[in-house]
Amino acid sequence: MLPYWLPLLQEAEEHVPTSPFEPEFGVIFWTWLVFGALFFVLKKYAWPAILSATEERERKIAHQLEEAERMNAEAKAALEEHKALVAGARDEASKLIGEAKTVGEAEREAILNRAREEQEQLVDRAKREIEAERERAIAELRREAVDLSLAAASRLVEAKLDDEANRKLVMSYLDSLEQAR
């Protein structure tokens, strides 16, 4: 048997003006109207409540990102500054060391010079003293020699010779010897 509602259904469907493949403008009109209304109603009354937390979070994250970027830049600048400071300090230090080196060098030079001078002076004095000592020794030797020669000569001639006059004679002889040498 037929289900009781089947002819009913068919009868009802006979009022249908279109097949599904024929778009009717009236329905397009309603679609726009309903969609537009839904869009604005949702935008005003529904989305803010649902999205507020997310949007708040997004804003916060964006803000934090900005902050982080700013701080990063600041840190970079500080690091740069610090680096410059360290480099400056190093330059200063090396300059100081260089200065100290030159000063030390000069000082060393001066001390060495002084020492050399002193040494030369010492050597000179010693030389002079040695020279004087030698002169004295030679004179002594010479006098001794004269005395000895005179004593020996007086023994030989067995005559008492005038001391002073003879000494002068011998001295002059010796001088002549020296000059001849």
Binding site: L9, Q10, A12, E13, H15, V16, P17, S19, P20
Partner: peptide
């Protein structure tokens, strides 16, 4: 077939 097609279509009921 007619019922199926009409059922998928728009109507005033």
């Amino acid at each position: 077939g007619e019922i199926v097609l009409h059922h998928a279509a728009d109507s005033y009921s």
